[in-house]
Simulated assay, not measured.
Amino acid sequence: MIDHVRDLASVREATDRFLSAAGKLGDAAVAAPSRLPGWTRGHVMAHVARNADALVNVLAGRPMYASAESRDGDIARDAGRPLDAHLADLRESAARLSAQAALPADWTRTVVMRNGVTDRAARVPFRRWIELELHLVDLDAGYELEDLPEEFTGREIAFLAERWSARPGIPAVTLVADDGRSWRTGGTAEGGPVTVTGSPAGLLAWLAGRGDKGAALDAGGAPLPVLPPL
C-alpha cells in the first residue's frame, strides 16, 4: 500500500540532499555537462524545479505541462542561470509542492500525468522522489546509484519493472538482485524467458538507462533486452 505521507517525508529528505549537493557547485560547474546527453547541470536543476511546479498542477487538477514545447522551453530558459538563482528556484518550487500536498485532498483519486498517463494521487510523492534521486545522480556531483536509499532502489526497480511489463519487443525477464530480491518485467516478445542477475544498483541502472546501463549484469549468456528510453 502506498503511504503518501511517508513518501512526502522522503521527498523532503531527498530535496535537502539535492540542495546540499548542488550548493557545493560553482557557476562554472553549473554550466558544465551533466550525465544526461545534451544537458548541463543547469538543465538538470531547471528540470527538477519545473517538475515540482508541474506536480503542483497535477495535484490541483490542471494539466501537468501546458505543452511539450513549453516544458522544454522553460528548461532551456532557466538552465543558464547562476547557481544562486537555481538554488532559490529549487527551494521555492519545492515549498510550493509541499504546500499543495498539505491541502485536504482525496489521495485515492486518479490524476493525469504527462502524455495522458494516469495514476493515483497517492503515488505522486513517490514520483517526485524518483525525480530527485535519479537527477541527483545525473547531476554528477558525487552521488551515485549505489548511494540511493535501499528502500528507494527496490521500489524504483519494481516501478520500472511494472512500466516495462507487457511492452512490445521485451521478452519475459526475471530480475534477481544479489540480496535475494526479485522482480518480473517484459513478456511480449518471442523467445525464451531471460533471467538477469546483479546488484540492485546495476539492475536499476539498466531499467532507468543510467550508469553502465546494465553492463555489469549477468543474463546467462543471452544479450540484455533493449528497453525503450524513459
Rank of each mutant, 00 (worst) to 15 (best):
residue 92 E to F: 03
residue 92 E to H: 09
residue 93 S to F: 03
residue 93 S to C: 03
residue 94 A to M: 07
residue 94 A to H: 11
residue 95 A to S: 10
residue 96 R to Q: 12
residue 96 R to A: 10
residue 98 S to P: 00
residue 98 S to K: 02
residue 99 A to S: 12
residue 100 Q to I: 02
residue 102 A to R: 12
residue 102 A to M: 11
residue 102 A to F: 11
residue 103 L to F: 00
residue 103 L to C: 01
residue 104 P to G: 03
residue 104 P to E: 05
residue 105 A to F: 00
residue 108 T to N: 08
residue 108 T to M: 01
residue 110 T to F: 03
residue 110 T to Y: 04
residue 111 V to I: 07
residue 114 R to W: 12
residue 115 N to H: 15
residue 115 N to S: 13
residue 122 A to E: 10
residue 122 A to Q: 06
residue 123 R to I: 06
residue 123 R to T: 13
residue 123 R to H: 11
residue 123 R to M: 10
residue 123 R to C: 02
residue 125 P to G: 04
residue 125 P to Y: 00
residue 125 P to N: 02
residue 125 P to K: 03
residue 126 F to A: 05
residue 128 R to G: 03
residue 128 R to Y: 01
residue 129 W to I: 01
residue 131 E to T: 04
residue 131 E to R: 01
residue 132 L to W: 08
residue 134 L to V: 12
residue 134 L to W: 03
residue 134 L to D: 07
residue 135 H to G: 09
residue 135 H to I: 04
residue 136 L to R: 14
residue 136 L to C: 10
residue 137 V to E: 08
residue 138 D to W: 09
residue 139 L to S: 08
residue 139 L to D: 10
residue 141 A to T: 02
residue 141 A to W: 05
residue 142 G to K: 07
residue 144 E to Y: 11
residue 145 L to S: 01
residue 146 E to L: 02
residue 146 E to P: 00
residue 146 E to C: 04
residue 147 D to C: 06
residue 149 P to N: 06
residue 150 E to D: 11
residue 151 E to V: 00
residue 152 F to Q: 04
residue 153 T to H: 10
residue 154 G to M: 04
residue 155 R to D: 05
residue 157 I to W: 05
residue 161 A to H: 12
residue 162 E to I: 01
residue 162 E to F: 08
residue 163 R to Q: 08
residue 164 W to G: 02
residue 165 S to T: 13
residue 167 R to C: 09
residue 167 R to S: 10
residue 168 P to I: 00
residue 169 G to I: 02
residue 169 G to T: 05
residue 171 P to S: 13
residue 172 A to E: 12
residue 173 V to Q: 05
residue 174 T to F: 05
residue 175 L to G: 09
residue 175 L to K: 07
residue 176 V to Q: 11
residue 179 D to T: 11
residue 179 D to A: 03
residue 179 D to E: 06
residue 179 D to Y: 07
residue 182 S to A: 14
residue 183 W to Y: 06
residue 184 R to E: 14
residue 184 R to F: 00
residue 187 G to W: 09
residue 187 G to F: 10
residue 189 A to C: 08
residue 190 E to C: 01
residue 191 G to C: 14
residue 192 G to M: 09
residue 192 G to A: 15
residue 193 P to E: 15
residue 193 P to W: 13
residue 193 P to I: 13
residue 193 P to T: 14
residue 193 P to G: 15
residue 196 V to N: 07
residue 197 T to P: 06
residue 199 S to H: 13
residue 200 P to D: 10
residue 202 G to I: 10
residue 206 W to Y: 15
residue 206 W to D: 12
residue 206 W to M: 13
residue 208 A to L: 12
residue 209 G to T: 13
residue 209 G to I: 13
residue 210 R to G: 14
residue 210 R to L: 15
residue 213 K to D: 14
residue 214 G to K: 13
residue 215 A to F: 12
residue 216 A to F: 13
residue 216 A to T: 15
residue 218 D to A: 09
